[in-house]
Computed example of a mutant assay.
Amino acid sequence: MIGRLYVVATPIGNLSDISERAKATLASVDVILCEDTRVTGKLLHTYKIETKMLSYHQHSGGTKVNKIVELLEEGKTLALVTDAGTPAISDPGAMLVQELVNRFGSDIVIEPIPGPSAVIAALSASGFPADEFLFLGFAPHKKGRQTFFDRVKETESTVVLYESTHRIMKALGEIEERMPLRPLVVCRELTKMHETIYRGTAREVTEQLESTSIKGEFVIVLKQL
């Protein structure tokens, strides 16, 4: 009998945001597949969970996937986590889930354990309509970046995207160039000690960021047209 894979959401910053169900799942499975064992290890240590970890990230090759397949074929139960938030959402876990579906089809049970998500947290605090929205993940670093922001401009619904510390100002500049008056919200370090939410146009938010630290992880939400 093929084992079971749990897709477990973990905190995006504040460790107390983990659910009781997530903790129970992580404590009961045979192996936890994690993006970075150091990051997940901190979470497990906090809640005294001693389950064995196995790394799985964007650079994991076929050998690692085959190892995971072998564990499932042995009937093992596995939990997939990412460093922060919900696995497979703008995350390499999506490739693993798809690979397992391709290999096992309906023979494998893949069970989501829902919880924190930066996308949903940012939307909930934005004040923008969220009955319809487009999530685009991270903007490309170079190739395809202009096309990416052109697509944002043409999208009429609310748009959500991620950006890094090193490119947040560049992203705001590209938004200002195309959509100077479109209202947006930029969320920095959601659920963490220095959580900050900036509101305004791209230019107004840029001016706010220029007067403070721009370290951290960012979620940008653009209001629907």
Rank of each mutant, 00 (worst) to 15 (best):
R4K: 15
R4H: 12
L5S: 04
L5C: 02
T10P: 07
P11F: 07
N14I: 03
N14M: 09
N14T: 01
D17I: 09
D17K: 08
S19L: 04
E20F: 12
R21A: 06
T25V: 13
V31T: 14
I32K: 00
L33C: 07
T37C: 11
R38T: 04
V39I: 14
V39F: 03
T40E: 08
L43G: 09
L44K: 03
K48Q: 15
K48S: 14
K48L: 10
T51V: 06
L54G: 02
S55R: 08
H57D: 10
S60T: 11
G62N: 14
T63E: 15
K64M: 09
V65H: 09
V65N: 07
K67A: 12
V69P: 05
G75R: 11
T77Y: 01
L78V: 02
L78I: 02
L78T: 04
T82V: 07
A84K: 00
A84N: 07
T86L: 03
G93H: 12
A94K: 11
M95Y: 11
L96H: 09
V97Q: 08
Q98G: 08
E99G: 00
V101N: 08
N102C: 11
R103C: 08
G105Y: 02
G105I: 07
V109N: 14
I110L: 13
P112A: 12
P114A: 12
P116Y: 02
S117A: 10
S124M: 14
S124W: 09
A125Y: 06
A125L: 15
S126L: 05
D131P: 07
L134V: 14
H141E: 13
K142S: 11
T147D: 15
F148H: 11
F149Y: 11
K153N: 04
E154V: 01
T158A: 12
Y162L: 15
S164Y: 03
T165G: 01
I168C: 08
K170G: 02
A171K: 04
A171S: 15
L172N: 05
E176L: 05
R178N: 04
R178P: 03
P183E: 02
V186S: 03
R188H: 03
L190I: 12
M193R: 13
T196K: 14
Y198H: 10
Y198W: 01
Q208E: 13
E210V: 02
I214A: 03
E217C: 05
F218H: 03
V219G: 00
Q224I: 00
